Amino acid sequence: MANLHEDFLFFNNALNIPSSKLTQLKTSEANIKRYIKSYLTEKKVPVPTLIRQGSFALGTIIRTKTDTCDIDFGVRFFPDPQFAAPTLQKYIRDALTKVSNSTLPKHKDKCIRLHYKAGYHIDVTIYVHTNFNEPIRLATKNGWLDSNPSGFKKWVEERGGKQAVQLKRLIRYIKAWASQQGKNMPKGVALTTLMANGFVPHFRDDLSLLYTLRNVYDNLEEDFCCEMPVVPFDDLLERMYEHRYSFLNKLESLINNLEKATHARLGNDKAKALIKGHFGKYFPK
């Protein structure tokens, strides 16, 4: 029986954002802060705090099979500047029109998106926090939604407990697998939630991944939904419902080959060849 633990650790490192791109991301982050501060100061609008969030903050960001990545930043106003949600979005969009090396910002429903020529995009979401006894509110084109971005990060880390670092590696593996599958895959936040809910720690990553994915599959086969564990508690798989059978079939194929790779009488080379097609070019040969 093959032991692919070290191969998965190699894979985890291979999924890291290259240092050159990471430097560009940090430069983009600094520029976004600068443009927002300058523009809002000119408009006499309170200057918000810019915080990292999503996979960047959680430590589960990956380079995709096309060597791209996406980053989430939160723009948080405290106290509430008393503007309508679309108005605050428009202020942030207008503040970012002069950002270099990117396309013009797109005003999406829940964020302002910037596409960069270097192969990444940044989503800037806008929040207001009225007071510490009220939930944070997320700006959308249609108004405000209750939200809790920092609460989600805390929830994931609590689910992992003492093995939170391993859970984050497993999340990166399944995100890389989803990237390899193409369209009609769950978003990163859904994959993260599924893996955290099904997490089975083990001293070997290959077996932890196998046992966790079995739980994920069984849970989804029983009820194809994934509730956001913090407000707004929405179903993160709602848009996936019509693609559920395709997704479950692909997931089952991955589980079956992980089972063979780790439990059949195969050498490491044959075991790696069996599952490399699921994970793509960054998985070792």
Results as ranks from 00 to 15, higher is better:
residue 91 Y to E: 13
residue 95 A to V: 03
residue 97 T to H: 08
residue 99 V to A: 09
residue 99 V to H: 07
residue 99 V to D: 10
residue 99 V to P: 07
residue 100 S to N: 15
residue 101 N to P: 02
residue 103 T to P: 02
residue 104 L to Q: 09
residue 104 L to W: 07
residue 105 P to I: 08
residue 106 K to D: 15
residue 107 H to F: 14
residue 108 K to A: 12
residue 108 K to Y: 12
residue 108 K to W: 07
residue 110 K to T: 15
residue 111 C to E: 10
residue 112 I to H: 03
residue 112 I to C: 04
residue 115 H to P: 00
residue 115 H to A: 03
residue 116 Y to M: 06
residue 116 Y to F: 15
residue 118 A to E: 15
residue 118 A to M: 10
residue 119 G to M: 06
residue 119 G to Q: 10
residue 119 G to T: 11
residue 119 G to A: 11
residue 120 Y to G: 03
residue 122 I to D: 07
residue 124 V to P: 00
residue 126 I to L: 01
residue 127 Y to T: 06
residue 128 V to L: 05
residue 130 T to F: 07
residue 132 F to N: 10
residue 133 N to C: 05
residue 135 P to C: 08
residue 137 R to C: 06
residue 137 R to W: 07
residue 138 L to G: 11
residue 141 K to F: 07
residue 142 N to T: 14
residue 143 G to K: 15
residue 143 G to F: 15
residue 144 W to M: 04
residue 145 L to S: 10
residue 145 L to P: 03
residue 145 L to A: 08
residue 147 S to T: 06
residue 147 S to Q: 06
residue 149 P to G: 14
residue 150 S to N: 09
residue 150 S to F: 10
residue 153 K to F: 01
residue 153 K to M: 06
residue 153 K to R: 07
residue 155 W to F: 05
residue 156 V to A: 05
residue 156 V to P: 05
residue 157 E to S: 11
residue 160 G to W: 08
residue 160 G to C: 05
residue 160 G to E: 08
residue 161 G to T: 02
residue 161 G to S: 03
residue 162 K to C: 00
residue 163 Q to K: 04
residue 164 A to W: 01
residue 166 Q to F: 00
residue 167 L to V: 01
residue 168 K to M: 03
residue 168 K to I: 02
residue 169 R to G: 00
residue 171 I to N: 04
residue 172 R to M: 03
residue 172 R to N: 09
residue 173 Y to F: 10
residue 173 Y to W: 04
residue 174 I to W: 02
residue 174 I to D: 00
residue 180 Q to H: 07
residue 182 G to M: 09
residue 182 G to Y: 11
residue 184 N to V: 05
residue 184 N to C: 07
residue 187 K to V: 13
residue 187 K to H: 13
residue 188 G to C: 09
residue 189 V to G: 03
residue 189 V to S: 04
residue 190 A to L: 06
residue 191 L to T: 12
residue 192 T to H: 15
residue 192 T to W: 15
residue 193 T to F: 13
residue 193 T to Y: 14
residue 196 A to C: 10
residue 198 G to F: 11
residue 199 F to N: 08
residue 199 F to L: 05
residue 201 P to F: 04
residue 201 P to G: 08
residue 201 P to R: 03
residue 201 P to I: 04
residue 203 F to T: 09
residue 203 F to L: 05
residue 204 R to Q: 15
residue 204 R to H: 13
residue 204 R to K: 13
residue 207 L to I: 14
residue 207 L to H: 03
residue 209 L to D: 10
residue 209 L to A: 14
residue 211 Y to W: 15
residue 211 Y to G: 00
residue 213 L to R: 02
residue 213 L to C: 14
residue 214 R to K: 10
residue 216 V to N: 06
residue 216 V to K: 15
residue 218 D to E: 14
residue 218 D to R: 10
residue 218 D to V: 08
residue 219 N to V: 02
residue 219 N to E: 14
residue 219 N to Y: 07
residue 220 L to P: 02
residue 220 L to F: 07
residue 220 L to S: 10
